[in-house]
Write a protein that binds this DNA or RNA. Sequence first.
DNA 1: ATTTTATTAAACATTTTTGTTCAACAATTT
DNA 2: AAATTGTTGAACAAAAATGTTTAATAAAAT
Lengths: 203, 203
Amino acid sequence: MPKLNPQTKEKILSAAEIVFHENGLKGARTTSIAQKAGVSRTMLHYYYRTKEELFYEVLESSFGFFLNKARKLFQAEEGLKATIEQIVDLLYDVLTEKPGLSTFIVNILSESPELIINLPPFQEEQIPTRFDKLLDEARQSGEIQADISGENLLLNIYGLCAVPYMVTPLIKFKESRTEAEMNTFLNDRKRVVKAFIWNGIQY
Amino acid sequence: MPKLNPQTKEKILSAAEIVFHENGLKGARTTSIAQKAGVSRTMLHYYYRTKEELFYEVLESSFGFFLNKARKLFQAEEGLKATIEQIVDLLYDVLTEKPGLSTFIVNILSESPELIINLPPFQEEQIPTRFDKLLDEARQSGEIQADISGENLLLNIYGLCAVPYMVTPLIKFKESRTEAEMNTFLNDRKRVVKAFIWNGIQY
DNA sequence: ATTTTATTAAACATTTTTGTTCAACAATTT
DNA sequence: AAATTGTTGAACAAAAATGTTTAATAAAAT
């Protein structure tokens, strides 16, 4: 009968999140995770028997993290413009907190897509449909004119928000930005992206 | 003194490209590469002594592939609108041919960014600056009004084009699309993206 | 016909990574 | 003071992956 300390378990889980986000399932090393968590590898295997077990917890919490927030957002029942702005803010918040999340998802989608496709929160997902409805309403009120599907709009929003996080080293290097300059860039870009999206669906 | 068959070398290289694109450096298995190439693992090591050596060739050819085409495009010296449309076409062409390329780049940028940052074709890259110039001209002629940097515009274009390829399994699954339906979707989306970008930089 | 060339399968050594076991040790709790 | 709890390091076993060697072979070139 094992005795567990929830704080240690949490330390391991957050270290695992970072390492898995950066390196994917196969690329991650349990040694790096233990080291980053500041515990011995013995402990890691004590709390999570296998690497796969630990990975699965990270996957669930990472993916669920975003989708849960997104779902709440749509419950607010706002109009198209407000919803877009809120979802951009949300994506930026999530990615500021977990900058490696997009890379991670993209990785897993490539290595073993079924892991994500079978996740209950993904199966239940209805965001594109919600956007279809909001787009229809906005078209009827004359607020926008563009003929774009909810699915495409969501892809656009996600692409525009996530791409700088996925290519951060390039953005940082090219202009030899410091960490602070990088944050300024990302912050400025948030405004750019919002304007770009709204203009993008006119006409 | 080893005797080599260029066709076999090529077979190994293209198989390696697919496997590395899907799984990254650490995730790829030399066994999968040899199998996909239809040769023995002995041959793989005969033509490329180590996995790293093979990986580096894939990285250079993959990244160079896109950048070389992009550079030619800017030499044509067209206006902003034509350049945007051509670069979208180019990205779609490249990604249709190598659908895993974006995932691969994003992967490497996460695992070991220096590998990409130190690539000569990347070091010499001037695309954002070219866009700055085209944007300036277009603003002066009244063609566009938006205050956006070349760097942000390039990020937008890249994000909009690459994201469907990076999340293909999600797009395919949600609407249970066949391969053919997926191609139709991507083709339709190309038009959507072009309109979205052009509208996006108005005002 | 003989040599050269490209290839393979099989066996093997090496390295890397994962997972297990266990004795020892502080810090708490009883 | 004794027992329990969470932890560690070290040693170890097992598995997975990489890289090497070699003898054999079929096809092509001489």
